[in-house]
Design a binder for these strands. Sequence first.
DNA 1: TATGCACGTCAATGGTGTTGACGTAAGGTC
DNA 2: GACCTTACGTCAACACCATTGACGTGCATA
Lengths: 240, 240
Amino acid sequence: MVERVVPEGSRQRRRPTKQGAVLSERLIVETALRLVEQHGAAALSVRRLGAALGADPTALYRYFRNTDALLLALADELIGRAQEGWTATGDWRADLRAIGLRLHARYQAHPQAALLAAHRTTGRTHETRVVERILAVLRTAGFPDDLAVRIYHAFVDQALAFAAQDAAALALPPAAREKEAEVWHEVYGRLPPGTHPHIAATFPLLAADMRDSGYPFALELLLAAAATLHPRAQAAPVGE
Amino acid sequence: MVERVVPEGSRQRRRPTKQGAVLSERLIVETALRLVEQHGAAALSVRRLGAALGADPTALYRYFRNTDALLLALADELIGRAQEGWTATGDWRADLRAIGLRLHARYQAHPQAALLAAHRTTGRTHETRVVERILAVLRTAGFPDDLAVRIYHAFVDQALAFAAQDAAALALPPAAREKEAEVWHEVYGRLPPGTHPHIAATFPLLAADMRDSGYPFALELLLAAAATLHPRAQAAPVGE
DNA sequence: TATGCACGTCAATGGTGTTGACGTAAGGTC
DNA sequence: GACCTTACGTCAACACCATTGACGTGCATA
């Protein structure tokens, strides 16, 4: 196979497409993100991306080895953006809450890329920086090392797992997404008290609660339980 | 459009395919599950499934409206298998722990299918039964309805999110999995204390802890925090 | 034994990612 | 300004994919 991808650094000959666009790795990543944002995950295909760029679809392969490489580039971009503007306050619980919610929110903005990114360890600079920051928050707060590590692990995995989980719902084709919402009302709303008494009794509450992500509350529970494990634990109820 | 799917209950005329197979919803689900397990999630296509069944690929559409409906059936099958043999003990915390760990374990046994299925709401019988059971555990334990619903939501989403997260790691091709573990040691094990002091200080602990899933500990934290929200809350430390 | 229709089959449609060949025009050199 | 070299945009083609409508066989029922 001919090596068709030239590393971004050594690119020199930029040549406009028939429609006048001048391609670059950066332009492609930004266009792809915009495409996903505006028209949903399903809109991201090589042909549509080519159309959006104003270029032949296969021009993409001069910049990325395949679509997976493109999606990893998107993912890297996301991780970077999630940390922009964040600074520690010194309150470990508020800091972890902010980091968790930011990561979650940023991933939700690009569900398709999030689905791929959340399950992978990249070892790239953005990722190591977040890890360092979380450990810093926990150790500075006075958690002993072994406990800090365990809490870090649960916290990070939970943030990424929920990010992927909620992204998956957003990344669903519109038809399937509508169907799922419908399933909740049609199926769960009509289960008879005889066979499913607890669902029947709480259905309105259920329907209301399931509309939003379970992550914020799960995060609060994790933080509250972690607080009770602190060597100088004080009364620190959920949500504090 | 002609309605082509006949509900499983009212099926009567079974007719062997050219290759002699007698199709059924159950056979299709089991074959699909086997296909995904043996050859990965990418192997699940209508054509390949037809070949594995010994039938014309489009015969599938006599049993499922589309591939998404099949996927939901797979998901529900996994949920069902996770519950086989479970019974309530009356100790809400032990019961939820058991349900969570069972779900997680069952999905890990079928990583490829778990990846596809863990994000979906099926509305099928196995799913509604778990939902009913979890709500029963919480309400019987004395949690008020609104709290029971919120805890249920966080608990279920956490279990499924972690199931998908950990399944993703298992589902990677062995080569890629080894490579990722290697990258982790190479990158995180060599970060200089100057730029990443907290990672450098805790690396041995980190490396040991990250080998296993973060779910069991995250689940304990959730249960411990939920216990403090109980109207008759007693001292109930993590892991009790 | 007769009959209606369930369902397995086939052909076709319009999508997808990806590859190899080709030629044009851009950059460097003189 | 002329000449090479080659990067890279384009094109055609391939092998898949899910899904559809039409068709007729042969089964279950009456």
